[in-house]
Design a protein around this nucleic acid. Structure first.
Length: 272
DNA sequence: CGCCATGTTAGAGG
DNA sequence: TCCTCTAACATGGC
């Protein structure tokens, strides 16, 4: 479910209630979601202090000092909140609880049980497989163009590949490709410098707008966002393109559904 | 009942 | 080596 803007929004929401607290307990009710194991994670966490809460790609990172940390990936339906009770959440969907000194516990809910909690002795090593952060100023247009040119993949699946670029999911890849006027099936190696620059700018613009909107809320899984009203193509097949009025289309690309304007985003001549 | 879903990954095959 | 696709994870909503 959550992509970079939603995870960023969650991190900002829970950070103030976590930083500085000491961990006094950890329980999980669906053990396969916890790595390396519930007991090992509990042993590693007890007594440690949360020094910082950050985000890397779609991971929530609880930094615990000494380079160690707890990584939380929400996958399709995971949610995090700090509260004494369940509030609006369904109690039967709570999968883990992190108890903290002097404050409410951090609760992890996940209807589909795809989410993961992982203790990492070395955060840097655990996160080393991720590509660069799209909003990192160190990622310039020239480097991005070089990254694209080094691969020969369809743009849509490449942008979804977290080892290529960290944080984009199905919604924001479609939105970025539309804004850059690039067809989702175009080959990454075929872009010129100007197109690569436009794509990077489009990715950043849509992510920043989404963060400002607290993310996208399309169903019960992620409430509170306002970006859904500003999506231009995702979930809008059949509606007129906001730019040229041609009917928007939805088509499978790399096993995911891509939404795009067939006129503003002309298809590549052959395949890929 | 069947199909879809904001995510990731292991494995097969080209 | 690189790319693409399938299955799997597990559940809820339509």
């Amino acid at each position: 479910m959550p992509e970079l803007p939603e995870v960023e929004t969650i991190v900002r929401a829970i950070r103030p209630a976590l930083v500085g607290r000491r961990i006094t307990g950890f329980e999980a009710s669906w053990p396969r979601q916890v790595q390396p194991s519930v007991d090992a994670v509990r042993a590693a966490l007890l007594g440690r202090r949360v020094q910082a809460v950050s985000r890397r790609g779609k991971y929530v990172v609880l930094e615990l000092g000494g380079g160690a940390g707890l990584l939380v990936h929400l996958k399709m339906s995971g949610r995090l909140c700090v509260a004494e009770g369940h509030g609006q959440e369904r109690p039967q969907h709570q999968r883990a609880v992190l108890r903290l000194s002097g404050g409410a516990p951090l609760r992890f809910y996940d209807a589909r049980k795809f989410g993961r909690l992982r203790f990492a002795p070395e955060l840097a090593a655990a996160l080393s497989g991720l590509g660069p952060e799209p909003l990192d100023p160190a990622l310039g247009p020239a480097r991005f163009h070089a990254m694209l040119s080094a691969r020969r993949r369809q743009l849509k699946p490449l942008l979804l590949d977290q080892s290529f670029l960290a944080g984009l999911g199905n919604i924001y890849t479609d939105e970025a490709l539309f804004r850059a006027r690039l067809h989702p099936r175009r080959s990454s190696a075929g872009l010129d410098a100007r197109q690569a620059r436009a794509l990077l700018a489009a990715i950043r613009a849509v992510l920043l707008q989404a963060i400002a909107c607290a993310g996208t809320s399309l169903d019960w899984i992620y409430p509170g966002g306002r970006m859904q009203a500003r999506l231009r193509v995702y979930g809008r097949e059949g509606e007129p393109c906001p730019r040229c009025r041609a009917p928007l289309r939805a088509q499978a690309v790399g096993q995911r559904t891509a939404h795009f304007c067939p006129r503003c985003q002309p298809a590549p001549r052959s395949r890929a």
